[in-house]
Design a protein around this nucleic acid. Sequence first.
DNA 1: ACCGGTTCGTAACAAGCGTTACGGTAACAT
DNA 2: ATGTTACCGTAACGCTTGTTACGAACCGGT
Lengths: 195, 195
Amino acid sequence: MSRSADRSAQGAALSRAVWDVLATQGLERLTVRSVAAAAGCTTGLVMHRFPNRRALLLHARQLLHEVTLARVEALEAAAPTIRAALRAILLQGMSIDEQNRQEAVVWLGFLASAISDDELIAEHRRNNHSWRTRVERLTAAAAPDWAPARVSSVALALIAMTEGAAALGAADPAAFPATQQVEMLDAALIAFGLF
Amino acid sequence: MSRSADRSAQGAALSRAVWDVLATQGLERLTVRSVAAAAGCTTGLVMHRFPNRRALLLHARQLLHEVTLARVEALEAAAPTIRAALRAILLQGMSIDEQNRQEAVVWLGFLASAISDDELIAEHRRNNHSWRTRVERLTAAAAPDWAPARVSSVALALIAMTEGAAALGAADPAAFPATQQVEMLDAALIAFGLF
DNA sequence: ACCGGTTCGTAACAAGCGTTACGGTAACAT
DNA sequence: ATGTTACCGTAACGCTTGTTACGAACCGGT
């Protein structure tokens, strides 16, 4: 058991290392050697767990998906109303704390690297589609009398707004503090009649 | 004059090459050699015009600023009303055609590379601040009776929304066609009482 | 206690990178 | 016509990169 425990611990350390390097040092410094250094191992171990460098990016993106998915479902389950759930899951998608800011950096780096990579962009599409259907479902539930076209438009507006806020807040946290992002989201929700 | 004309023509070809490589091949393939190949010259010329690779990125970002600035001012001048001007300049900031989509890719790549580069991130802050003050000015003019806090919140919402739509549309044009982006923007402008 | 297989570190490889130095060439001034 | 200067291509340097091959160490089963 100590063997398998060590192995999963190593896997977790490697995951953290990939995440940390991409989140703090950016896309161009995400190299096999820097990940190995961050994980406290050698490049051999990294290349035994990941077939190539693109797998590092893919892993970081899947990690981002898992983390946000778990958080979003917990928020949705704990919210008293549907509208509160919608607001809560949109809030966690912006750059309102250091955790979210790092996630936005990872999102940005992955997307920039996926521009010329079909496999990576396919992963982005999968995750983004899942996110979009969730927001559309909650929007439709929060405004049952809306036409599907309006639900789609408003959900798209909310998604684009939070994603943009995540990127802008990640690149310039001082110019886009959490309070302004929250006010922005509330202003939008009120304007759309969802609050 | 033939000499200086050649020189400026070479400069324009180099600018186009930097832009094209970054827009079509992404950040990681933006290398001195690929730019030279795209410009039809050698690496020597590239390194005579740019001190280092970061200058390529900086140049692409400044090019993006110049292009969008000129287009935005033309749109603003040609718009019949302030609200039409606001809508027009927001439209051009999303991924509604191939030109805008390439601009979003350049924006994405630059931002991802600026994460761990103070000089690049400073350029982003400059350009973004200028963009933000413009949208805030137009928003305030379009809704003169609003309190400054509301102007700021709504302008931030519009900026984040268009920037997010630009990124999402650039990464997945099929999932975010131009019609949906336009409907999204109009829905938001109507909801905010700006249309 | 020995052995087979997994696991990971070591070391090296070729390729590509940014960057620099040098030489030739063409335009300009005198 | 000749010297000077700016311009740019050639070639190379040193370094980092992703990736691979090989060997040692360790674990579980017999």
